[in-house]
Every structure is written in C-alpha cells, then in structure tokens.
C-alpha cells in the first residue's frame, strides 16, 4: 500500500449501503468527478458501506439506478485503491471472497494510518 500521498490526493469514505438512501451514489459521484479532474482517489468502504461491494447487487425496486455499474467503472477512472474495513466485513458475517472487486482489507491500525495519510477526506 502506498503510504505517501500528495496534498491533492483524496480519500472518499463510503459508510452507507447501496439502497435506502442516496449517500452511496452521491459519494461515488464525488469520487468519480475528483478522478475525472485528475486527482488520485482512494475509496474506503466502512460499516454497512462494505455491502456496496457484494456481488449481484441489483437495481433497487424503487427505480434507483444501482451502484454496481458505477463500481465496475472505477478502473476506467483510474480509481484503483479500494480499501475495506476488516471489522465492517466481519461484523456483517462477510468475507472478501464475496466481493465483486479486489480490495485491500484494513485492520484498525492500518485504517488509522490511511486516515492520517490523507489531507483531504470526504465522508459519505
């Protein structure tokens, strides 16, 4: 993992599940725009936010667009650092094998290092 960051690097923390609110979608929108503007963006999925990465997330029955398609596009935007809170997964009885993308699982101490390593953090 890269421990050194430029001042313009951005950490986007996603803490909400894909359905039930617009937090995840609006957080991802911010990440994509930042990447499109040339920032190096890392995503950190915490708490219920880890469920965004579960395979087979469908469109919501309420006409939401769904976020799986956006997650599949991350690579195109050069968003390659995908971090997951280890405790977030285990609390929900999930393992990283069940996720649709390759991620790096972070212990609490690694999490603290990532947070302190970024000057700019947006939390959704």
């Amino acid at each position: 993992m890269q421990e050194h960051h430029d001042d313009s690097d951005l950490l986007v923390i996603l803490r909400h599940a894909p359905h039930g609110s617009s937090w995840l979608r609006e957080g991802l929108d911010a990440a994509l725009v930042a990447a499109a503007f040339g920032r190096r963006v890392s995503l950190l999925f915490m708490g219920e936010g880890v469920t965004a990465l579960l395979r087979g997330q469908q469109l919501g029955p309420l006409g939401q667009k769904g976020t799986a398609a956006t997650l599949e596009m991350l690579e195109m935007y050069d968003i390659e650092t995908l971090l997951v809170e280890e405790q977030g997964l285990s609390r929900l009885g999930l393992s990283s094998d069940e996720l649709m993308l390759e991620v790096e699982c972070l212990s609490p101490s690694a999490l603290a290092r990532v947070l302190s390593g970024h000057r700019l953090v947006l939390t959704f």
Binding site: D7, L10, D29, A30, V33, A34, F37, L120, L122, T123
Partner: peptide, 20 residues
C-alpha cells in the same frame, strides 16, 4: 455549480470541514 468545485476548494483551502 458542479462537484468539480468541491474538489477544487478542498485542494485550494487549508481546511475543508464537513457538517452532515
């Protein structure tokens, strides 16, 4: 305005403080 402005002020200012 667009979300690009958020990225811009976050980079330009010494501190960006979030309230939610």
């Amino acid at each position: 305005t667009g979300l690009g402005q958020l990225v811009d002020i976050g980079t330009r200012c010494d501190r960006l403080v979030t309230f939610g």
